[in-house]
Design a protein around this nucleic acid. Structure first.
Length: 111
DNA sequence: CCCATGACTAATT
DNA sequence: AAATTAGCCATGG
């Protein structure tokens, strides 16, 4: 039952990016996927990576939403996710984010 | 190596 | 605008 030490990979990369999301900003799984694999197709893999979420709260994974503006899911429950987003100042309507594209965080691609 | 699963996305209906 | 379908990718058994 001891937790396996298998980090260091796709998952860590995802977490690293998510950690960079400032408060009040949002990011989509697709964008993260594109940063890692260069394609939006790995969005699911990204979702899986954060789904393990080894460090809840430490990593603001609640700031990662769907590309269509839907809040998506959350390990601790979508309810919790919405609450945290509200705390960040992000308005949520039902399961959709208001001003979604407006609150989007453009990843640091100035490189 | 093959199969199943999932915090996704885009295209259709 | 909401629901359905199909496609894609990493991870685990």
């Amino acid at each position: 039952m001891a937790v396996e030490i298998k980090d260091l990979n796709f998952q860590e990369s995802v977490l690293k990016i998510v950690k960079q999301i400032p408060k009040g900003k949002l990011m989509t799984y697709g964008e993260i996927a594109r940063e890692l694999t260069g394609s939006v197709r790995a969005a699911r893999a990204v979702g899986q990576a954060v789904a393990k979420n080894p460090y809840p709260v430490v990593v603001p994974c609640h700031r990662v939403v769907r590309s269509n503006g839907d809040v998506g899911g959350y390990s601790l429950g979508v309810d919790k996710k919405i609450k945290l987003l509200s705390e960040d100042g992000v308005e949520i309507k039902g399961r959709k984010v208001l001003n979604f594209e407006q609150s989007l965080f453009l990843f640091d691609f100035k490189k």
